[in-house]
Design a protein around this nucleic acid. Sequence first.
DNA 1: GTTTATGCAAAACATTTGCATAGTC
DNA 2: GACTATGCAAATGTTTTGCATAAAC
Lengths: 147, 147
Amino acid sequence: MRKRGYPLSEQLMDALEERGYRDTAPRRTVARAIAEKERHFAAEELREQLPGIGRATVYRSLKILVEAGALCRVLLEDGNLHYQLSHRGHHHHLLCVECGASEDLMGCDIEDRLESVADAHNFQVSGHWLEVYGKCQTCRAELPASA
Amino acid sequence: MRKRGYPLSEQLMDALEERGYRDTAPRRTVARAIAEKERHFAAEELREQLPGIGRATVYRSLKILVEAGALCRVLLEDGNLHYQLSHRGHHHHLLCVECGASEDLMGCDIEDRLESVADAHNFQVSGHWLEVYGKCQTCRAELPASA
DNA sequence: GTTTATGCAAAACATTTGCATAGTC
DNA sequence: GACTATGCAAATGTTTTGCATAAAC
């Protein structure tokens, strides 16, 4: 989804402009910082690394980026909420509890399975939240504790 | 899992005593209040309805009840954390966004599905969090908006 | 020029912790 | 009597809000 030669931070700005939000310097700064993230991050963490930007601006930017579908929220195993770049569309995450890496889970058939289970309960599904925790390939190799 | 004629609040207390926690009046009060809940509830909500009990006691009781497996935590669609009686063992919830009712989802094969999808990513699953939101049978009948 | 965004500080929440006192076992 | 639990108040940490100023369109 990442176009060649087109900065990721610009794509974030585009997502906002498509929705009528203005192109401002603080938002660009936030977008650039997010684009450089290699992992999911906490709102407060992002704010700390942008001392020139007001707290409210950071939080408001995160909010509208999520609305625009450019970011997604990630629920950590300890209950903390993080953010990460979204590859658009509905998906889930495989979150590594060792290194924090996350892989996207798309096009899997978990949705279908959910639907059929819910059907059996006469329940009409409108949404769901799924996070999967474990160890990624790399960490399994490095820490052969149980893998 | 609820034995006939044996108060639910006593079962909560039992779960604590099994783990070595003492039988105290405040804990009984909390247990009784929880036993009367028909829906998942917020910690703060429980505390407000127990003015005689200290805030810390309410929170500490919830924590040990979750550890003991007698309560489970429920993630609401808006990100708020609620609690509800647990029927022990691993399970998920179908949460009605209209009335707040929740049905347990047990013995379904979503776990297996997860494992196999994760395997394909060379990912070793150690846990997951799944909540399903939608409309329950009753609300579908009452509000025939789209069901 | 009108509308939207910013930054600050303060408010709002939810949850946790330190500690002296009280209650259990 | 030793150990655990309680209650309070204060600390913590995160997110939101009001509002005057500044910037974007």
